[in-house]
């Protein structure tokens, strides 16, 4: 049975429907069904985008009909440390055959870190229907599903199919340094590794030193490494398991304002997704300046 792309929710899996916003997540089965039914690809109802840490991974083989969206090359402004503006974003989407009413499914490597980051940036532009592929690239590969090196053609978009100019709305889901200073005393989640949280490491284990001159964490932040939300197969943990971590153990509650941060905002996008879409928190912001800003800022408080 081929699921209808019009159905906003992947109902093939009870685990998925238990989440607060199940329409934000699709299973590999659901996506494989859409691909087989010809519903995916540039200009179609569903556009699949791959967003990886490794910029060349897409070229080694990707999901059929998928196009690449690179966090660094595409989503970041090349000059200012910020995301692209409305016109650049519209060009990016149009070049991938995405319209405002397209269902966008994002997937990627590293348990969807960068895919979650791309989804969050699409959310800054209020793209109505953007979802993650649960389990990401690794699960698709582990299940022995098809990969291809064929890059789909993108049909020339007429003016009516072009992505509209939409002003980015940062405030609801993005926190800046001053917002975090004003937020001190309220819940903060540090999703980095324990060594980075304690200040013993200035970067991720096995990763480059990215130039933070101070180690530690933002005062009052709870340490919940992002990977705790991921199961062994790379999918998200069940709602029950996630509630046990974030609600019971950490004492967070869905109506509170929460700010999540990491090093540059990619791992915390993963946690932002978990809190917002899987657990239904109403006001979570991702502080993308994160430790590469806080650990270098003058006179901001730090706890070790």
């Amino acid at each position: 049975m081929t699921p209808s792309p019009a159905d906003p929710v992947d109902r093939s899996d009870d685990r998925t429907t238990a989440y607060a916003h199940p329409e934000r997540l699709v299973s590999t089965d659901w996506l494989a069904g859409q691909i087989a039914a010809g519903a995916t690809g540039p200009g179609r109802a569903v556009v699949v985008l791959e967003s990886d840490e490794d910029v060349l991974l897409y070229e080694t083989g990707h999901l059929p009909t998928a196009l690449k969206l690179d966090w660094h090359q595409d989503l970041n402004d090349p000059l200012t440390r910020d995301y692209v503006a409305a016109d650049q974003f519209a060009r990016l989407m149009t070049a991938r055959g995405v319209g405002r009413d397209t269902t966008v499914v994002v997937y990627g490597d590293k348990s969807n870190w960068w895919a979650a980051y791309a989804l969050w940036v699409l959310s800054l532009f209020g793209h109505p229907d953007v979802r993650l592929l649960d389990g990401g690239r690794a699960l698709w590969v582990a299940e022995g599903r098809e990969l291809t090196r064929d890059v789909p053609d993108v049909p020339q978009a007429g003016d009516d199919a072009a992505y509209p100019l939409v002003t980015r709305e940062d405030a609801p889901i993005r926190a800046f340094k001053d917002d975090v200073l004003a937020h001190l005393g309220k819940p903060l989640v540090d999703v980095r590794s324990p060594g980075e949280y304690s200040g013993e490491l200035l970067h991720m284990p096995d990763y480059p030193q990215e130039g933070a001159v101070r180690g530690g964490h933002i005062p009052g932040a709870k340490s919940v490494p992002w990977a705790r939300a991921a199961a062994e197969d790379g999918r998200f943990r069940s709602r029950e398991e996630l509630e046990a971590i974030y609600l019971t153990e950490q004492g967070l509650s869905p109506e509170e304002d929460v700010v999540a941060y990491c090093r540059i905002g990619e791992r915390s996008s993963h946690t932002w997704f978990v809190l917002t879409h899987l657990l239904g928190f109403e006001h979570v912001r991702n502080y993308d300046g994160s430790w590469t800003e806080w650990g270098n800022a003058v006179r901001v408080p730090i706890e070790k």
Binding site: D54, V55, L56, L57, E59, T60, D109
Partner: peptide
């Protein structure tokens, strides 16, 4: 590893 093609390149 193969999943790090840029580094391999």
């Amino acid at each position: 590893p193969p999943e790090a093609p840029t580094t391999r390149g």
